[in-house]
Design a binder for these strands. Structure first.
Length: 478
RNA sequence: CGGGGUGUGGCGAAGUUUGGUAUCGCGCAUGGUUCGGGACCAUGAGGCCGCGGGUUCAAGUCCCGCCACUCCGACCA
C-alpha cells in the first residue's frame, strides 16, 4: 500500500494493473455485471460520464453539419454479404437471430456489429441526384460483436457508441470529411478528456474491414499500453459499387459517391480510467465529470453547517457547475474516501471552524492539495481550480506519453525495450506486411499507426533492411 | 478459441482433504452517542452454498455435465 493511499479496497495499480482497473470500475459504481458474458450494466454514475461525452461530441457533430438518425438493429444476411472485405471482417463475430416468435426465419438476421450495410442499402434507395449530396449522418446506438474475452468498457460484446456515416460526391470531399472527424475526436479526447493523442493512419493489416484508409487516434494508458480511442474511415466508392449507390452529376453522368464512417465508443471511458486514475480510484477530468464539486458538511448537526453548505452548493450551481451536497449520515472521512474513489475533481469541506472564519476548504482530487477559500471568493476559486485540474491532468498524461516513446533500429531492440520499459516504439518501415508481421512475432507489438507527424529515424526498414520512407508507431494494445 | 484461477447472505472470505444443524468480517435496518481522513455501542434482518444431473440414510463437501466471472495469450472500438 502506498503511503498516501486513502482507499484500502482498491488494489494498487503497481501490484496488479488489471485488478486495479476492475476494482475502480466496480467500486466507483460505473458498471455492474449482467447475467450474460460481455454485456455490462452502465450504472447511473457510469452512464452520466457517457452522457457528458455524448453531449460534447453531439454538439461537435451538429456544428460540422451532421444530423442524427436511427437505423434498424437487425441486418439480413444477404445485405451483410454484399461487400466482400467487410463481411470477412465482421462475420466471425456476428450474433444471429434465426427465430421470430415460434417461426424459423426464412433468412437469418445479424444483430448489427456496425451499420455500414444498413446505411448503404438505405442510400441506394434515396440517392438520385448530386443535389442530394452530401449525406452527413450519425447515430447513437449500441452494437453487438461476439468477442471471446471481455472487460468492462474496454471490450464488451455489446457496447454503446456513435457511428457516423457520410456520403459525398467526390473522393476529395470524403477524404476531407474523414480527416475532419478524426480531428473532432482528437479535440474531444485532448480538450475534454485530457488525454493526449497521436494521430495517424492504420496499416492495411490494421485498417477497418472494407476501408481504403483508416485514420486513428492512439492514446497511451498508465501501464504504457496503447488504446485506440477513435477511428475514422475512408471507403472510397467500394461500398457504393457493392450496394449500387449512384447518382447523376451536373453533367447528367452516372457517378458512384464516396463514403466515410467514424466511430467512438464507451471504450473511451476505460481510457479515461486508465489515463488519469490512481490508487485511490477514479480521477475524472472536470469537463466531463458528472459531479464537479462535492460539498461535504463536517459536524453537520452543529448550527448553521448544513444550511450554509446547501447555500454554497447552490451558489456554485448558479455559477454553472455540477454540484452534489452529501448530507448523508456517514462520517466525513467515509465521504472523503467515497468521492475520491468516484473521481470527483473538487471537494468542498465546510465545518464549524470554517463558518467562524467565513471560509471553506477546497481539496483537489488530482494532487490532494487543500486550500482555505474565503466564502466571497468561492465561485472564482472553484472555477480556477477546475480549469487547473483539467490542464494538470493533460500535462501529466502528455508527459507519460512523451517519455515512453522509444526509437528502435531492429525488431530485437524493439522487443527488449518493450520487455524492459513498455511504451510505444517508433521505427522506420518499408511498408511491407511481412515486416509488420515479423515485428509482431519478434517484439510482440502491433502497429498502432503511421503518424501524420512523420520523423526521419533513418533510411532503412529495421526488419528487412530495404529502403523505408515512413516512420511507424508500435505498441501493445488493449 | 487455448491456458490458469474463482463461484458459499449485498461484498470479502472460512468450511470441501476426512459427507453429519450454515460460520466470520464488512455492509444493510432500527435506536442512541458521534462527526476536520473510511466512528462507536446495542438490537435485528438477510442463504435452493453458480446451475443441472448422479452417488448416499444424509452432499456446500464426492462424481459427471454446464454456466458465469476473472487473469494471460490470438482478434476487435
Amino acid at each position: 500500500m502506498s503511503k498516501d493511499k486513502k482507499v484500502q479496497q482498491i488494489t494498487d495499480m503497481e501490484v496488479d494493473f488489471a485488478q486495479w482497473y476492475t476494482d475502480v470500475v466496480t467500486k466507483a459504481e460505473l458498471v455492474d455485471y449482467s447475467g450474460v458474458k460481455g454485456l455490462f450494466i452502465l450504472r447511473p454514475y457510469g452512464y452520466a460520464i457517457w452522457e457528458n461525452i455524448q453531449s460534447a461530441l453531439d454538439a461537435m457533430f451538429k456544428a460540422t453539419g451532421h444530423v442524427n438518425v436511427s437505423m434498424p438493429l437487425l441486418i439480413p444476411e444477404s445485405l451483410l454479404q454484399k461487400e466482400k472485405d467487410h463481411v470477412e471482417g465482421f462475420a466471425p463475430e456476428c450474433a444471429w437471430v434465426t427465430i421470430g416468435g415460434s417461426e424459423q426465419l426464412p433468412e437469418k438476421l445479424c444483430i448489427r456489429p456496425t451499420s455500414e450495410t444498413l446505411f448503404c442499402d438505405h442510400w441506394s434507395h434515396v440517392l438520385h441526384s448530386w443535389r442530394d449530396l452530401p449525406f452527413l449522418y450519425n447515430q447513437w446506438c449500441s452494437v453487438l460483436r461476439w468477442e471471446k474475452t471481455t472487460r468492462p468498457f474496454l471490450r464488451g460484446r455489446e457496447f454503446l457508441w456513435q457511428e457516423g456515416h457520410t456520403l459525398h460526391a467526390t473522393a476529395e470531399e470524403a477524404v476531407e470529411e474523414t480527416e475532419r472527424m478524426l480531428n473532432v475526436y482528437a479535440d474531444l479526447t485532448e480538450n475534454w478528456l485530457a488525454m493526449p493523442v497521436i494521430k495517424g493512419v492504420k496499416t492495411d493489416k490494421e485498417k477497418f474491414a472494407g476501408a481504403v484508409n483508416t485514420y486513428t487516434i492512439e492514446c497511451m494508458m498508465h501501464d504504457r499500453k496503447a488504446l485506440q480511442a477513435g477511428t475514422s474511415h475512408y471507403f472510397g466508392d467500394g461500398f457504393a459499387k457493392a450496394f449500387d449507390i449512384s447518382f447523376n452529376d451536373k453533367n447528367n453522368t452516372l457517378q458512384y459517391p464516396h463514403q466515410t464512417s467514424w466511430g467512438l465508443s464507451t471504450r473511451i471511458i476505460g481510457g479515461i480510467i486508465m489515463t488519469h486514475g490512481d490508487n485511490s480510484g477514479l480521477v475524472l477530468p472536470p469537463r466531463i465529470a458528472p459531479i464537479q464539486v462535492v460539498v461535504i458538511p463536517v459536524a453537520a448537526h452543529r448550527e448553521g453547517v448544513t444550511e450554509t453548505a446547501l447555500k454554497l452548493a447552490e451558489r456554485l450551481r448558479q455559477a454553472g457547475l455540477r454540484v452534489k451536497t452529501d448530507t448523508g449520515d456517514q462520517s466525513p472521512g467515509w465521504k472523503f474516501a467515497e468521492y475520491e474513489m468516484k473521481g470527483v475533481p473538487l471537494r468542498l469541506e465546510l465545518g464549524p471552524k470554517d463558518i467562524e472564519n467565513n471560509q471553506c476548504v477546497l481539496a483537489r482530487r488530482d494532487s490532494g492539495v487543500k486550500i482555505n477559500v474565503p466564502l466571497d471568493k468561492l465561485e472564482g476559486e472553484a472555477k480556477l481550480l477546475l480549469d487547473d485540474i483539467q490542464s494538470a491532468l493533460y500535462k501529466k498524461a502528455k508527459k507519460n506519453l512523451d517519455e515512453n516513446i522509444y526509437p528502435a533500429y531492429s525488431a530485437e531492440e524493439a522487443r527488449d525495450i518493450i520487455r524492459e520499459k513498455g511504451g510505444f516504439i517508433k521505427t522506420m518501415w518499408c511498408g511491407g506486411a511481412d515486416c509488420e508481421n515479423k515485428m509482431k512475432e519478434i517484439a510482440g507489438v502491433s502497429s498502432r499507426c503511421i503518424p501524420f507527424e512523420q520523423e526521419k529515424l533513418g533510411d532503412i526498414c529495421p526488419v528487412c533492411g530495404k529502403p523505408a520512407g515512413k516512420s511507424i508507431l508500435w505498441g501493445i494494445a488493449y
